[in-house]
Design a protein around this nucleic acid. Sequence first.
DNA 1: CGATGTGAACGCGTTCACAGCG
DNA 2: CGCTGTGAACGCGTTCACATCG
Lengths: 224, 224
Amino acid sequence: VTRRISDSSVRRLSLYLRALEPLALEGLETISSRDLAELSGTTAAQVRKDLSLFGAFGTRGLGYPVPALLAELQSILGLTRSWPVALIGAGRIGSALYAYPHFRARGFQIVTLLDDDPAKIGARWGDLTIRPLTCLEGEFLEHGVQMAILAVPAAVAQAVAERAVAAGARALLNFAPVRLRLPGDVRVNSVNLALELEALSHALSGADLEAAEGADGDKGPAGA
Amino acid sequence: VTRRISDSSVRRLSLYLRALEPLALEGLETISSRDLAELSGTTAAQVRKDLSLFGAFGTRGLGYPVPALLAELQSILGLTRSWPVALIGAGRIGSALYAYPHFRARGFQIVTLLDDDPAKIGARWGDLTIRPLTCLEGEFLEHGVQMAILAVPAAVAQAVAERAVAAGARALLNFAPVRLRLPGDVRVNSVNLALELEALSHALSGADLEAAEGADGDKGPAGA
DNA sequence: CGATGTGAACGCGTTCACAGCG
DNA sequence: CGCTGTGAACGCGTTCACATCG
């Protein structure tokens, strides 16, 4: 029953879940693949393919039962349990992630805060105290941490990641703009903020070029 | 000469650029596709395909000239100019992005800070003052803003995005976990932080299942 | 020789079209 | 009849293999 689901499908499952939650609260009983696609920004066929991957049972002629589908998505995404998460790096990004409300709502609980800046160690954020990196192994063991968020400078990311993995981490969410070289069984998701802006920059530059080539005269940007 | 480059290629071009920068500083003259692939986490064939998309001239038997390649990548990505960027939302995420050093290093300059929280308006961050959302149109016009970062609550993201687009934005980097419905010529990149953790959660749960199944006798084709 | 550049083959995710069931 | 479930067709990015050139 356990099939491999492609990364892109998994990402869409998260979007479906997000779309379904408010509908479930409203008490909606069923939803069609077409409506769910509209809410999630994809196509009806894609929704049906995704949901059929794990054998979801929709009702022909009606659609999918919202509560059951929501529960199934949570199960597939591993959200039926609480995940203890280590947050490494108590800088501005770490601070933003610590306060990010959507993590806890999904069962991700930050259970330890680590940093190597003496000026930060000992400070309290909410009900957690920032601990030095030397506590990493002990904290990971104590809380059973398998998931860690790396919000540290690029220069130290590799070393910190290796330590986290040695201490038991099997999945990392990395915010440092470097490629982490880790054992193949460690899952790494990287969020590269500058890269996202660069993609936008490329798109705008390309649009400029096309506009310049396509139109003989100049068109200024539409003003407000 | 202007060809369409796939999104995945554009993302890799950013990675190549990041890998080349330190090498250029060291004065490295040339680099082979194999070495660049190794540094960027892809394959040599992929590097050659990507670079051939925009007609880069490598030297057969030697490799690619580092300084020229770096300049070419910057040009393709639209990084030869400075981009004025509006940052909307002065919460924790906004704060982290404002201080993010890698933006300015790439030519992205935050030129205006907007928020609708009266408690924040008027505060100074560095050399910028947080302005109310009512200033959005004026600020966009004054600075020629085409690129905006949305770090606002999900509930208001759609409305703020529409306003930004009406004021001249053509590309948005969105941190709110909602799907933005905007005209097709507006480029939107979304960073969905909870979704990233959910992908990790799925991977860990899947690994658990496989381990449980594999322990029963059958072993999957796990390599690496 | 060595490494690039590229057509061809491959794999895979997406889309299509329709059979099947409520 | 409506909508799901799914095999087949399609498109596209990746990989392969080799001709090409310094």
